[in-house]
Design a protein around this nucleic acid. Structure first.
Length: 280
DNA sequence: TAGGGACCTGCC
DNA sequence: GCAGGTCCCT
């Protein structure tokens, strides 16, 4: 059993809305979805099979608890799963919107970036169709473009100080090969990925690991935000209670998760993160 | 290395 | 005031 609402509203993906009670609508890349969250079972389609990671244990939390007794102390989070978004460009820019930000505003910003770039929307002229746009034009063949808005446009749309970094990051991404560059990074070690992503403006250690985990499917990545910090301190680093997160500690937390959970570190992080998110 | 402050906007 | 950080400067 998958808790669809929990999965889609937990900050892994940002393009889904509950359009009426128990009905969730949104996009993964250029693929549209409309699902009922009451008694949800994913469609047989290979696309959604990958998105919901159905080749992985259904009771993920128990699977992880077997690797770590302390992890078993977490409250039960029913039906929760790590998602596997298909389009690295979508995830890349989505997480660029998340720094020091709230879920509700993130969703609006992500919608602004991508609302014109899916094959279901009418091919109205938009800044996305300007120069620098990669991949297919906005046709029924699908394929999402790279957002190439300018800073004033994003300022006007309420992006705040991220209005400066997002166009810069887009330029750099395009210069490095765009979507193909990100897809190549899927075959690259986490260390190397971190080095690459950290060189983007507006991308620090936390966003680096978010992009590694969700855009690149590197499940060794452990994004340490305030919630994961709280949870990790409670669970594994009680001596650090009352101290602040530094670069050293950031690294140590990720290393600990990787030591204990190996390639399931990213999955484990999600439960620790979510448990703290809901407890405060 | 660690600590402190600014930064857009919106909600508590 | 502070938030699901980053960047810049002591």
């Amino acid at each position: 059993m998958i808790d669809l609402a929990k999965c889609l509203s937990s900050g892994q993906v940002f393009r889904w809305r509950e359009v009426e009670p128990d009905v969730w609508e949104g996009f993964d890349g250029s693929t549209r979805g409309r699902f009922n969250s009451a008694n949800f079972s994913p469609p047989e389609d290979p696309h959604w099979h990958r998105f919901f990671r159905l080749d992985e244990p259904l009771d993920l939390q128990s699977h992880l608890a077997q690797m770590c007794p302390k992890f078993a102390a977490l409250p039960r989070i029913e039906g929760f799963r790590l998602l596997r978004p298909s389009d690295p460009v979508e995830s890349f820019f989505s997480f660029l919107c998340t720094s020091n930000n709230h879920l509700s505003r993130i969703a609006k910003m992500v919608e602004f970036l991508f609302s014109h770039s899916t094959d279901s929307s009418p091919p109205t002229p938009s800044p996305l169709q300007g120069e620098g746009v990669l991949d297919a034009p906005l046709t029924s063949a699908g394929g999402m473009s790279i957002p190439t808005f300018t800073e004033p446009e994003l300022r006007a749309a309420g992006f705040g100080y991220r209005a400066a970094t997002i166009p810069q990051a887009a330029k750099l991404l395009i210069a490095r090969g765009g979507r193909a560059y990100l897809q190549e990074l899927r075959q690259t070690s986490l260390k190397e990925v971190q080095r690459e992503l950290l060189s983007f403006p507006g991308v620090g250690p936390k966003l680096t690991d978010c992009i590694a985990l969700y855009a690149l499917h590197n499940t060794e990545a452990v994004p340490v935000d305030v919630h994961l910090w709280n949870g990790a301190v409670d669970l594994y680093f009680p001596d650090w209670r009352g101290t602040t997160l530094t670069a050293k500690k950031y690294e140590a937390i990720g290393d600990h998760f990787r030591t204990v959970f190996g390639p399931w570190a990213g999955h484990a992080h999600l439960f620790v993160y979510y448990a703290d998110l809901k407890s405060r």
